[in-house]
Design a protein around this nucleic acid. Structure first.
Lengths: 222, 222
DNA sequence: CATCTCCATACAGATTTCTGTATGAGCGAA
DNA sequence: TTCGCTCATACAGAAATCTGTATGGAGATG
């Protein structure tokens, strides 16, 4: 089993809970914790330089801002930074996030080894995830594998995301067109934008723009 | 100090973290925990019938749904139910919620004794809160008292909330007017609705309806 | 090559949004 | 009582949204 693990989680109580589980249920002897990404990165770097590396990083995704100014502000950035030093470190993300596309992105783009949803069964899931990852597996959360959700099927490309983003910021279609032209993004005819937004209405069963924005906000896509 | 405490929190890791703090830092001997509101209520009721009552309830606000069907589904309902049996029980809410108006509502309408924000300083805050409540104080979260936020100053009445709700569901102003008339809610002139929505634009510095919806969704008002 | 389909755009019209002005009712203060 | 204020409504016009149709090009298929 792993012997040296770093836990990056800004939320103190959860931090303590994770350590308790790793310690009491799995029997990992050396667990360090960090409430800030920067601090986690420094701890990691120091261990690496001392040739006493961590074997596993367990990290949250979002870290609240406070008075301490941080250069690394998200779990994703932390993972990238840590992996840039030690490419083979195992990474488990432990987060509230439960959108399948977001979680899949973590596996595909960041090559994380495991994911655990904060929730009712987090203890069991965390134990199974750590064991699985130790055995070299990639451990997806059970909520996800059991749930091939319909909402999942909607594939949004970059243009869709830009449109949603701009609309949610109050941009009018004309302004969006200008912006797309400025950014040299190709389909930028005003009526094509209309068509795409109409398609989004269909996809999300929205009646109009405010409704659409409400839906994607609820889904956490923005 | 309190000797018998009930912790209602569906999120397992946090559950363990709270218990650890109550036990190790404050030295409370008897701590029971519950991942479901119904279960928490039953534990509470049993203790009350056995004349071995809990002195303090620490509860989250939101509980995720799962296969177990619950009659009590929110921390707020749990508090009301528990208070209906034992009016003088002390209650501390421990939640992610950080909107001042929502938290103030808890103090005003539910008469909770303390509130702790999940976050970086939750351990210290929880300890201070429990001690303060034990001494008979009402303990507001420091984030709130130090932060007389601007967003706080916006007072939304029932009509505002209905308008936001309807708009977010894609209703047009005409439909909203009809709905208001049906519900026999008094100011229901179409142009007055326009005015109120325009006022919301000003309040939230929104450029148009989609923008407004995005803002209030981000603020968690809907 | 002819055809079919999809993508990108243009245009047009009906509807809705947003903003401004006007009007009266109610209410407190001078 | 009369002034000033806010609330509630009506109306009106410019701008934006939403929807449908039309056109041309690119790529696939037979």
């Amino acid at each position: 089993m792993f012997t040296k693990v770093l836990v990056a989680e800004d939320y103190e109580i959860a931090n303590q809970g994770i350590i308790k589980v790793l310690n009491e249920h799995i029997g990992i002897p050396c667990i360090e914790e960090s409430k800030y990404c920067d601090d986690a990165y420094l701890k990691f770097r120091k261990a690496f330089n001392d040739q006493n590396t961590f074997q596993l990083l367990i990290t949250d995704l979002s870290f609240r801002e406070d008075h301490n100014i941080q250069t690394i502000t998200s779990g994703e950035a932390l993972i990238k930074n840590v992996r840039s030093i030690q490419t083979d470190i195992k990474v488990i993300v432990y987060s509230q996030e439960d959108r399948p596309d977001k979680i899949n992105m973590l596996f595909e783009k960041l090559n994380i080894n495991g994911y655990v949803c904060k929730g009712q069964h987090a203890i069991r899931e965390l134990i199974e995830c750590v064991q699985g990852v130790y055995e070299g597996k990639t451990v997806h959360p059970p909520e996800l594998t059991n749930n091939p959700e319909a909402s999942m099927m909607i594939q949004l490309d970059e243009l869709d995301m830009i449109l949603l983003e701009e609309l949610s910021q109050g941009a009018t279609k004309k302004e969006i067109r200008v912006k797309l032209k400025d950014l040299q993004i190709s389909p930028n005819g005003e009526s094509y934008i209309d068509k795409r937004v109409s398609k989004l209405f269909d996809d999300f069963k929205a009646r109009n723009t405010p409704h659409l924005i409400a839906i994607v906000k609820d889904l956490g896509l923005l």
